[in-house]
Simulated assay, not measured.
Amino acid sequence: PDLARYRDAVADLLIEIAGHNGPEDLPKAEKVLTERLADAEFAPVLAASPEGRPAAVDRLLREVRHYQPQARNCAADLAAHIRIHLFALIDVMWWGSARAFVTDPDLLHAAELVDLEPLRRRGELHFRYRRQARALPLRAVRAADRRLRPERTPRTAGLRFARARRESVTLLNQLAADFAAAAPGTPPLWVTSLARSIEQQRRLRALGYTATLPSAHCAGYAMDIEMSWFRRFGATGVLEGLLLERQRAGDVNAIDEGQTWHLCLSPAAMARDAQAATTGG
């Protein structure tokens, strides 16, 4: 599918929906969306969905009907909610048939994922992340630190599972190196989310987060990168440019989710990495 054409069609659709952004505008927005999804520009991505075009459209319309503006929803308004779900269809097209990690133990024992902690201790990671605070004392310490130094680190819960595909680690290290070179003196790239189980994704949805299902996170092909925090360093434009450059090269699908940007590795990037590993390049 011509993804540039698809993304342009999404942008045009959002302009049409922009005047119907409130919860009371849902019927009008749904009507516009239903009509526009019949356009030829949307057909290849919808048809390539493993569930089939009708089911993909039905799922998208359900997500629109259930939209609720709230603090945990990364979509600032209805148009942003629709944009995120339309671009997430690219992830589904690529990885909707891939084996997902259904439960947390499935993810923890997945041989295709690597544990980031040993890599971090050996200095092999050029990006930053932090683990989710599960124990009450650590949560209290972090809360106190946020009050005293609110801008020291991004406002993120941290990784529940510090596990990722090797290809994701490679991409993040490359992005971190590019970011360091393009924005000297800025803190390193910060990763807020990597592989998730379907179990975790459902927990996030229940809490009101924009956690799509199916999700490339649940197959280990997606990651989220902090964006808003870098505004205080004047580096968001640089980082956005690097991510969009990777998208234009066909390496990733990039989705602006407000505080963070979502990245999904493309099958072409995965194949290229596998070829490089085979040849030693």
Rank of each mutant, 00 (worst) to 15 (best):
Y6T: 05
V32P: 09
D2I: 11
L13F: 01
A18P: 08
L26W: 06
L13G: 00
D8A: 11
A11Q: 03
V32I: 12
T34M: 08
D12M: 04
A18I: 08
L14K: 01
K31G: 12
A4N: 07
L14F: 00
K31M: 13
A11V: 04
R5A: 11
K28W: 13
A9D: 00
A11H: 03
A9L: 01
D2Y: 09
N21T: 15
L14M: 01
G19H: 01
D25K: 04
R7N: 04
A4S: 10
Y6I: 06
K28E: 12
D8R: 09
A29V: 06
D8I: 07
P27F: 07
A4R: 09
E35L: 09
A9G: 01
E35A: 10
D2E: 11
V10P: 07
E24T: 15
R7Q: 06
L13I: 01
E16P: 05
G22S: 15
I17P: 05
H20E: 01
N21R: 15
A9N: 00
E30M: 13
A18V: 08
L33Q: 02
A29C: 04
N21D: 15
G19K: 00
P27A: 07
Y6N: 04
D12I: 05
D25T: 05
R5L: 08
A11C: 04
E24I: 15
P27K: 06
G22W: 14
T34E: 08
D8E: 09
R5Y: 08
D25F: 06
L26N: 09
N21H: 15
Y6D: 02
L3G: 12
I15D: 14
P27V: 05
Y6G: 05
